[in-house]
Write a protein that binds this DNA or RNA. Structure first.
Lengths: 350, 350
DNA sequence: CAGGTTCATGAGTATTCCGCATGAACCAAG
DNA sequence: CTTGGTTCATGCGGAATACTCATGAACCTG
C-alpha cells in the first residue's frame, strides 16, 4: 500500500484514522461510510488494516455493531485531535497564501451544528479551494471591527449601528413545531393544545415568549405555559426533548433528522412561523471576496443546498421553500436572545 | 491521487509532510531524499504537490538550494509536531496491544546481562505475548511487599523471612573456572597453581573467599592470594580480565562467549563447583500467572534453553547438564555478597 | 420462514507514490 | 572558455494504495 516515504510500519495512514474516527462516532462501518461518502467495504478494510498495523483490537465486533475497546477508547481522542490539528495547520499556513480563501463566518450555534455544517460538504465539492472558520454567536458581529466576513442569524429589528450598511439575504423562515420523544406522547391522534399544556414544556431561556405565542388562542394560563425545565440554547432543548424530559417547540430545520430517525415525533399538527427568518448578513467589503460571493451564490441558488439526506439525484430546495433573492439592506437582525416583534404567523388548524 | 476518504483537498498527505520536514532539515531535496531513503524526484514531487495543495510557497528556490519561506517557517513546527504526535499516538495505543503480559523479574546483574537476557529471544519466539521488566538485585526480594513475580539468584542459606513460602527451582550450578586474556598467559601448557598465584589475581569483593577455596590445597600464602585488583561485581571482574589486568575466577556461564571468541582463555584445566546454584524463586501467587508458568516451564525444560549460539537444530541443554525438576521450598538464597557455606567441590586434576 | 442489515472478503479499477532518465541551471576547477 | 559535478523539475512507466461491486455468513425482526 502507499505508505509513502519511509514511515514505520506502525504509523497509521490518514484514511485509516478517518475511518476509525467515523466508526467510533457512528457505531457501524456502514454508517461511517455514509458519513464519509464511502462504502462499508472501504471502511471495513481501513479499520481492519489499522488494527493489524497496530496489533490492537480497536473495536469489539458485537453482533452487527462496533463497540470501542479500551484501546480504541484511549486512541479516539488522539486520532480526532490529530485529524483536527492537521486541518488547522493547513488552514493556518494557507492564510499566508493568496490563492486559498478562508471564509470566516459567525453563526447561531444550533443552526450551525444542525443545518449549516452538515451541508458544507456539498459546497466543498463545488468550491474545494474555499475553507471555513466558523464561530458561534448569538449576536450580530460589528463588521467594522470584527474580521468576520459574514454571519448567519435570524433577522429582526434593532441592533443599532452594528449593521450599518450590511446586506441581508433571507435563507429560510423560522418555522417552529412541537416535538417530543415518542414515549412521552399518548398513543393515537396527536394531542390538542389543552393536552399538550399538561405535559412538561421545555423552555428556551433566550426565547421565553415562544410558548406564549403558541398558546395565544388557547386561553391557557401563562404560569402553566412557562413552567418546565429551562435551557439556554435550542441545542440543549433538543437534547432534553430527546431524553424525554418534555415537549419542545423547536425550529423545524433543527429537528429534521431526529424526526426522520424516530428519536422525536411531532406532537402537534400545527406549526408557527416567526417574523424573523434566518438570514445571511455581510458587510459591503465581503462582496469583494470571491469566497464569499461563491458561498452566497450557493446558499441562495434554489438547487444548491440539498436536504441533509442528500443524494446525487435529489431535487434541491426541499427544505427551503421560499428563499428571498434580494438583500434587505439596512435591516438589523434580532439575535436569538431578543424577543421578536410582531405577531408570529400561525399555520395549521387553530 | 490517494487522498483517501473524504479528506478536504487542502489536507496534506503524510508523504508530503515528511518530505517537507526533511527538506527543511537538509536544505536540498536530494539530501532529504537520502535521509528518507527516496530519490530526489520523489521529494521534489511531494513538495511541489504540497505547495500546490496549500497554495503557498513553502520554500524559495535559491539557485540550487531550498530556503524556507515565511509560510514554510511557520508551518515547520506544526508539521514536525504532527508527525511526532502521530507516531507517539500509535506507540501509545500499541501498548494496549494484544493481551500482552509483563513478567517482572529481579536478577543478579551479571547473570542477567550475560546469561538470561541473551537467551530471552528464544523465549519470545515461543511466547511473543509476554514481555519483561527485569531489575538488577544482589538480594532476594521480599515477595510480600515487592510486586515482582520472580527472582533469579544463587541459592544459599539465610535471608530470613524474605522468602517465606517462596519456591525455588535450580537452574544450573555455579561452576567457576580461571580465565585470563591470552597475552597474560605464557605460551604452551596451562600454568599450574603455583604459576597462577604469581600472576595478579582479580578479586571479587562480595565473594572474597573464592580464591582461598581455589588454592586450598596449594599451600599458597593467603596474603598473596588476596593481593590483586578488587571489584564489586563479577561483571567488573570479567571486564578487568578482558583488559588483561589479571587472572579471574568466574562462573563458567558468564564467560562462555568470551572463551569462544578468544578474548579470554582458560588459565587452568580445573574448575570448582560451589554449593550455591542459580535458582529461580517465586512466591506462590506467581504460579497463577500464565506468563510466569510459561517462563518457568521454558527455563526448566531440558530442551528449552539453548546455548547462546543457538541454532534451529541445536540440541538443548548443552549448558545445563543437571537442572532440578522440583522446587526447593523454604530455602533461602545466598546473595552474591555472602560467603557460601560448605566445602566447594573441586574438579579436574588436583 | 422471508426480508433486511451488518461485517468481512474476493476480484477488479482508479489513483497515488515513487524510480529512472533527462534537460536546464548553477558552481568550481583547470 | 570547457569540463565535470550537483541541483531541481518533469516525462514516462510500474508498483502499491484506496476504493467499489458483489457475495457469503451472521444477525435481527415480523
Amino acid at each position: 500500500m502507499n505508505q509513502g516515504m519511509t514511515r514505520r510500519n506502525y504509523t497509521p495512514t490518514l484514511p485509516e484514522l478517518q475511518a476509525f474516527a467515523a466508526c467510533a462516532r457512528q457505531g457501524t462501518a456502514t454508517r461511517a461510510g455514509a458519513e464519509l461518502g464511502l462504502t462499508q467495504s472501504a471502511i471495513s478494510r481501513a479499520l481492519g488494516s489499522l488494527e493489524a498495523r497496530l496489533g490492537v483490537a480497536l473495536f469489539h465486533r458485537i453482533r452487527q455493531r462496533l463497540a470501542l475497546s479500551d484501546a480504541g477508547r484511549a486512541f479516539l481522542p488522539e486520532a480526532e485531535r490529530l485529524l483536527a490539528d492537521l486541518d488547522r495547520a493547513a488552514l493556518t499556513v494557507m492564510s499566508f497564501g493568496g490563492h486559498r480563501d478562508v471564509l470566516r463566518l459567525a453563526c447561531l450555534p444550533t443552526f450551525a451544528t444542525h443545518w449549516l455544517i452538515p451541508r458544507l460538504a456539498g459546497f466543498q465539492r463545488i468550491a474545494p479551494g474555499i475553507s471555513f472558520d466558523i464561530t458561534a454567536t448569538l449576536t450580530a458581529p460589528d463588521f467594522d471591527r470584527d474580521p468576520r466576513d459574514a454571519a448567519i442569524l435570524r433577522a429582526g429589528p434593532g441592533a443599532g449601528a452594528t449593521l450599518r450598511g450590511a446586506g441581508q439575504d433571507v435563507l429560510l423562515e423560522e418555522r417552529l413545531i412541537v416535538v417530543a420523544a415518542p414515549a412521552l406522547l399518548p398513543e393515537g391522534d396527536l394531542p390538542g393544545d389543552a393536552a399538550l399544556s399538561q405535559l412538561p414544556l421545555l423552555q428556551q431561556a433566550t426565547r421565553p415568549d415562544l410558548w406564549l405565542d403558541w398558546f395565544r388562542d388557547a386561553g391557557t394560563a401563562p404560569t402553566r405555559i412557562l413552567r418546565g425545565p429551562r435551557f439556554e440554547q435550542f441545542g440543549m432543548v433538543l437534547a432534553a426533548a430527546r431524553a424525554g424530559l418534555g415537549v419542545a417547540l423547536l425550529p423545524e430545520v433543527l429537528v429534521a433528522s431526529d424526526l426522520a430517525s424516530g428519536a422525536l415525533r411531532a406532537a402537534s399538527p400545527r406549526s408557527m412561523v416567526t417574523a424573523t427568518p434566518y438570514v445571511l448578513m455581510a458587510p459591503p467589503r465581503s462582496h469583494d471576496l470571491p469566497a464569499f460571493t461563491a458561498f452566497r451564490d450557493w446558499l441562495l441558488c434554489p438547487g444548491a443546498v440539498p436536504p441533509l439526506h442528500w443524494s446525487q439525484a435529489a431535487p434541491c430546495g426541499l427544505d427551503r421553500p421560499a428563499a428571498a433573492r434580494h438583500p434587505v439592506a439596512g435591516q438589523g437582525p434580532s439575535p436569538q436572545g431578543q424577543t421578536p416583534q410582531g405577531q408570529a404567523r400561525k399555520e395549521g388548524k387553530p
